[in-house]
Simulated scan of single mutants.
Amino acid sequence: MDLLLTDVVMPGINGRELGRRAHQIRPGLKILYMTGYSRNAVVHQGRLDEGVNLLEKPISQAKLALKVREILDQFE
């Protein structure tokens, strides 16, 4: 099982578009987004859809590891 970790806001391409393109290449790919903005802000501004896997920065290594394990365990 593969997982892509990407920021929501990046120069040149946003995380949503990167995720869309990655899904075209690898349809089963799981995506974890991270952002310095609140979940509410990125969803309501249309940057991400409701219900996506999202971590808000700052992120500890332990929290990141738990979230990655949670996502990968959902699909085993």
Rank of each mutant, 00 (worst) to 15 (best):
52 V>C: 10
6 T>P: 00
61 Q>F: 14
27 P>R: 02
17 E>V: 15
47 R>D: 09
27 P>N: 07
69 R>M: 07
24 Q>K: 15
32 L>H: 00
65 A>P: 00
49 D>N: 11
55 L>G: 07
4 L>E: 00
22 A>T: 12
56 E>S: 14
3 L>R: 00
28 G>P: 12
61 Q>D: 14
36 G>R: 06
45 Q>D: 13
33 Y>L: 02
33 Y>A: 03
69 R>T: 03
36 G>V: 07
56 E>A: 13
24 Q>L: 15
36 G>A: 15
42 V>A: 08
47 R>I: 03
22 A>M: 14
4 L>Y: 00
71 I>K: 04
70 E>V: 05
3 L>F: 00
47 R>E: 11
50 E>G: 04
63 K>R: 14
12 G>L: 09
11 P>T: 05
10 M>S: 06
15 G>I: 03
70 E>S: 12
68 V>F: 02
57 K>Y: 02
47 R>N: 08
26 R>T: 12
30 K>M: 10
61 Q>S: 15
69 R>P: 00
47 R>F: 11
65 A>T: 09
76 E>Y: 10
44 H>L: 13
65 A>N: 09
31 I>K: 04
54 L>W: 04
3 L>H: 00
26 R>Q: 11
74 Q>T: 11
2 D>M: 04
39 R>H: 12
9 V>W: 09
1 M>F: 10
64 L>E: 02
23 H>P: 13
3 L>C: 01
24 Q>S: 14
56 E>V: 14
47 R>P: 03
6 T>N: 02
72 L>S: 07
49 D>T: 08
76 E>C: 09
16 R>C: 09
37 Y>V: 09
47 R>S: 10
48 L>T: 05
19 G>E: 03
22 A>F: 03
36 G>L: 08
